[in-house]
Structures are given as structure tokens and as C-alpha cells.
Nucleic acid binder design. Sequence first.
DNA 1: GAACTAAACATACGATCGGTCGTATGCTTT
DNA 2: AAAGCATACGACCGATCGTATGTTTAGTTC
Lengths: 197, 197
Amino acid sequence: MTEDQRLARGTRTRQRIARRAVDIASVEGLTGLSLGRLATELELSKSGIQTLFRTKENLQLAAAEAAQAEFTAAVLLPAEEVADGAARLRALIEHWITYAETPLFAGGCFWSATLPDFDSRPGPVREVLLGQHSAWLAHLAGRVSRAVTAGEIRALDPDLTAFQLDAVLTAANTAMRLGDAGAAEKVRRTVTQLLGG
Amino acid sequence: MTEDQRLARGTRTRQRIARRAVDIASVEGLTGLSLGRLATELELSKSGIQTLFRTKENLQLAAAEAAQAEFTAAVLLPAEEVADGAARLRALIEHWITYAETPLFAGGCFWSATLPDFDSRPGPVREVLLGQHSAWLAHLAGRVSRAVTAGEIRALDPDLTAFQLDAVLTAANTAMRLGDAGAAEKVRRTVTQLLGG
DNA sequence: GAACTAAACATACGATCGGTCGTATGCTTT
DNA sequence: AAAGCATACGACCGATCGTATGTTTAGTTC
């Protein structure tokens, strides 16, 4: 009853596969993701991946889950270290910029690549991606709301402001991918203009 | 020397194919576009399409060109009918909203679907899409600039404002695709907030 | 040690991918 | 009438796609 090392090995390689799937999907999209390429890059057999995920759809769902976990650890949680209010909101945006700029995933923002891919494709993957996107917008709106009630920024509509912030961040990610080095600065100028210098 | 009806027929079906390719690409992306599906939908032979475009890449380039032509006719030109200045800028945005909402293409905005698909994929298709995107931003910036010099809106930075407007429009297109009916209203509120009621 | 289980593999399948080749048909030029 | 060109087609190519099936290996449980 200590620990089944077979299952442990399974979840370990499962995570390794999901992590690489996120990198590929951030470039090619979740539809462009393929078992064959994944197997080649990880030096596994295609059928080996198949035993761990059964279907491509399960693999896509696992990739979405892994992406969110990494995003939370790299962007959301570090911002929570900063004092609540406008400072935390600004820290959140700064961490997002480095998330897209570094980048954490090979193709930049995971959702900027996968949402356009799946927004017209019905099924559970679309539903999960939509849920993650909504959660991100709600998180943003919550941080805006806190900054407003603290009286540190203007009395903005949290939902509308979250929509605007997400829009600018997503556009910046695309601009970075297209080679625009000044994208981060445009985001910063927009944020100060939006929240009030 | 009147008119070569062979070439005429060629360009005619060529345009028919390109138009359908735009619709497919607006949903699946230019990578997800396939000759087989195109042939089935148009009731043509796969090799018939290939004789007209030779390679898939040429087809993708033709689709990009066709998309821009339709976009210009549906969004850019109608806005030019309106008086120069802030009114023309607002008309441009309204025409863009109906372009995404109607929608003109089966999957909504063509570039919202194809830019994330090709932003990390080197080659002439990426270059063309990038050029079209830059031209759109420049067009937006020009209309902002005209409104500013006319003294009808605040003294905004045209390039930065164009970036912000494009960001919000693109985000609205995604939101519409995900079922958010209030996306258009968010755009309008953002525009009034941005340009000054 | 025997029975069982999970991970990983090899093999094979039907479908589809983009692309090539040869050919038939109709229009244009000579 | 003859020669040439453009469209359009069917047949086929090698490659890759996702999936299904059976087998081997290693770890667990009895």
C-alpha cells in the first residue's frame, strides 16, 4: 500500500507528454497537434502515447490542463505575492508580459493559439478552453474590482476593463510573434492610460 | 484579340475556389484548408484545383488576396462614404462590427483565424498576412490621425490607438465566436471611452 | 511462485494529405 | 486544317493521420 510505481511512472510520462503537447499546441494549435510528431520528439512510440491517453481528444484536454497549471504558477501566483490592489493588478500584467515575451511556451500564449483554432469547433475541448478563458477574464475583473474599491484607480467597470486588458494582451502576443519588439511597451502605455497614470 | 474564353473561365473558377477557400480558412485556418475538402464542396476534382493553383501555398496566397478584396469592399470602402474625421473613424468601426457579426466569412474575421495559425510559420504566406495586418493598422492609424487633426477627438497617439482598436475588435471577434452576444456593445463602450464620448 | 495489472511496444488498418502524371476536351492562333 | 494552349479530369504515389489489436516487460497482490 506504499506507492504503485507503475502508476507513478505512468503519470510521470503522462505529464512529460502533456508538457510537450502544450509547447506544440502553442505553435500549431490543438488541432495541428499530432501523436506521431509527439512520439518522435519525445522518443516514444506512437502507440505508447496512445495507451496513456487513448484518444487525441483526451490528449488535447490534458494539454489544456497542463497549460493552465503552468500559467497559474508563472503568472497568477507570483502576482498574489504583491500587495492587494492596483499594485497587484499591475504585477499581474507585468508577469503576463514576461509570460508571453520569454516565452513560457514555445509558441507564446497557449490560448492565443488554441482559442482561434477551437472557437468554431464544438466538443469538450472547446468547452474547457472557453471555461479557462472565462476564468481568466473573471480573475482579471476581480483584481480590477479590488483596485477600484481600494480607491487606487478610477471607478472602472471591472468586466469591461478585463475585456480590454485581455484584448490588449492578446494583441501584444500576436504582435510579438510577428516580430514587433515594441508590443510590451504598447501594453504598458495602454494600461497606464486605462487605469490612470 | 477579343477575349480568350479559356483564360476567362480559368479566372472565374479560380475566384470561385479562392472565395470558398476564404470561408474554410476563416474556420479552420489556412493550414487546416485542404484541397480534398475544397474539391468536394465545390464539386470539382482535386486535380482540377491543382491545375489552377499548382501548390497549396499558392492557394493560400490566393485566399489571402480574395479575403482582403472582400474586406476592403465590405468595410473600408463603405466607411469612406462618410464625412472625413471622427465620423468616418466611427463608421469604419461599425462596419467592422457588422463584418464580424453578420458574418461576411463563415468563421468570422479572416485574420483572427489565420494570423495565429501562421504567426510562427515562416514563408511567403506569413509575409503576406503580416503585410495585410500592418496595412490595416496603418489604415486605422490614418483615420485616427485625421480625426485628431480635425480637432474632433483628443490628441491621441495614432499608432497606439490603432493598436488598441485592433486589439478590442479582434477580442470581440473571438468573444462572438465563443457565444458572447455582448461583444459588440463592449467594443462600442471601449471606443467611446477611448475617443472621448 | 501464480495471477493480475499497467506501461510501452510493434504492427496493421482505413482515411486523408499534397503532389505528379497522362489524357481528354475545347478555345485560339497560325 | 493543323498546331498549340488552358482547363479539367481520373488514377496513382509516398507520407501521415488517428485508431484498434495483440504482445512484451515490469511491478503489485495474493
